[in-house]
Amino acid sequence: MSDQPIIVSASPHVHSDRTSKKLMYDVVIALIPAFLVSLYVFGLQALLVTGVAVLSCLLIEYLIQRYILKSAVTIGDGSALITGLLLAFNLPAGLPVWMIVVGSLVAIGIAKLSFGGLGYNIFNPALVGRVFLLVSFPVQMTLWPTAVENNTTLVDAVTGATTLGLIKEGVQFGQTITELSPQIPSVTSMFLGITTGSIGEMSALALLLGGLYLLYRKVISWHIPVALLGTMALMTGIFWYVDPEHYANPLIHLLSGGAVLGAFFMATDLVTSPVTKKGMVIFAIGIGVITVVIRLFGSYPEGISFAILIMNAFVPLINSYFKPRRFGSKIKVKMV
């Protein structure tokens, strides 16, 4: 016997060794490859943006919980760290520091803590921060520094449009895809990440690696990424097949504009996605459709952030409509 009194609690008396903290740190690990790519192409700028975003998210969460909410401080659980990382991943390198801090404030303060903290937020905090910055500072937020291989500088004068931005603008001004094609980076460079865009969306390869790690660790299930990317491919494929001169091919859509980042890291956020597999598929299809609609017919070249936020709002509804089948309900008794 021990000196301390014996413990009595209800069953079960064993627990799996998975904890929410471990889940969060798995996500962080999965983000590392994409971060390394961004370091490679954007250099210290990427480090600066990511560092500021992460630190300000942690600090803001600490300050608000400590001094305003006067509740337990939970910065150790890794969720604020992820919010910071994902926010940075959705920002262009070279964004002014104060804007990043504003974005973190919106992400943590408004989108997360004002809803009750981890587990209670309806919208993905990082995306709320990003979209807030996008609509408030449209110019700075779309000033994309061009990727330079093996970049080590802090200053980057050369800026360019993203692939999707190029196509959108070009098509609007009456150009065809064939005419634009010299400016569109090759699929390989898009896949590897030598392209233009926000910090984390560069390399589909690195993101896929991270995504596969999450799948392997069972942090996420395949349903959301597959259904989301599948829907996007199918829809853009149809348009491309009908009119290849005005609509870009599905590969371009999948490899740019944060589609992979969104599909594996943003839409799969545990808190803001449905709980059942059926619900996840519906949710992901919804995101896919809205993204494609925004990309092809809206005023923004990219649309996955908006699409995810819109579908986030439907999660409670999806949860209450797409329930697992109860054991023993709706069955025909089969007799041998």
């Binding site: 889940l23 009750g116 903290g117 587990g119 803001t272 709980v275 059942t276 697992p324 054991f327």
Partner: peptide, 17 residues
């Protein structure tokens, strides 16, 4: 800690609850 709505419990429930 608070529920992060990961849906693990829904996945493992043998009764579909």
């Amino acid at each position: 800690r608070s529920c992060i709505r990961c849906g693990e419990c829904v996945d493992v429930c043998p009764m579909g609850l």
